[in-house]
């Protein structure tokens, strides 16, 4: 009875953890196979960047395309070669979107009640939008949803990575 009670809340989290760990280890393995590690400072820096990308990619691939943040991450990772190659073009593409958003918000503003809304009046919303990938263009409710989901996966990923670090440092 008590065992079942304790098992049920941990089960989804641990399942998620297992999936994340599996993905992350797979990506790390491919990373190691592709570029055998050598110990140079710049190499280590680049390598840590790759590991970070691998972590985010494993997170996003576990979630799949059903979330905006995972879609954004996957898109960014998939196109990062292109992004690095022609940053100018991407910038030109992304600018009109931002302008459009700005315009829409300005048009919507006069209808609003004068009420101190932290989502509109402070810069916090913009900050959060910058932090959560793919959340630049979604409405505040969706932003909060995405943030919650993103936090969940990110926390689990951090835990997995920490466990891996401990594991490798002890063996």
């Amino acid at each position: 009875m008590s065992a079942s009670q304790q098992l049920t809340p941990t089960n989804p989290n641990s399942a998620l953890k297992i999936r994340l760990a599996y993905r992350f280890l797979l990506t790390l393995n491919t990373l190691n196979a592709k570029k055998p590690p050598n110990f140079d400072h710049t190499q280590i820096h680049r390598r840590s960047h790759r590991v970070k990308i691998a972590a985010y990619a494993s997170m996003a691939s576990v979630v799949g395309p059903k979330r905006a943040w995972s879609r954004a991450i996957l898109w960014k990772i998939r196109n990062r070669g292109m992004l690095a190659r022609n940053k100018k073009r991407i910038h030109r593409i992304s600018t009109p979107i931002r302008l459009h958003r700005h315009h829409a918000r300005r048009r919507r503003n006069p209808n609003r009640v004068v009420h101190v809304d932290p989502f509109v009046n402070s810069g916090l919303e913009v900050k959060l939008r910058k932090l959560v990938p793919g959340a630049e263009t979604i409405d505040p409710c969706g932003l909060l949803d995405e943030t919650a989901d993103y936090i969940k996966y990110l926390a689990t990923q951090v835990e997995v990575m920490r466990n891996l670090v401990d594991l490798y440092s002890t063996i």
Binding site: L28, N32, P37, F39, I44, R47, S48, H49, R50, V51, K52, A54, A55, Y56, L154, Q157, V158, M161, R162, L164, V165, Y168, S169
Partner: peptide, 14 residues
């Protein structure tokens, strides 16, 4: 933390 841990993993990896 992800950044830091990835750095650590990169060094521990070998």
């Amino acid at each position: 933390q992800v950044e830091f841990l990835s750095m650590k993993l990169a060094t521990v990896n070998p």
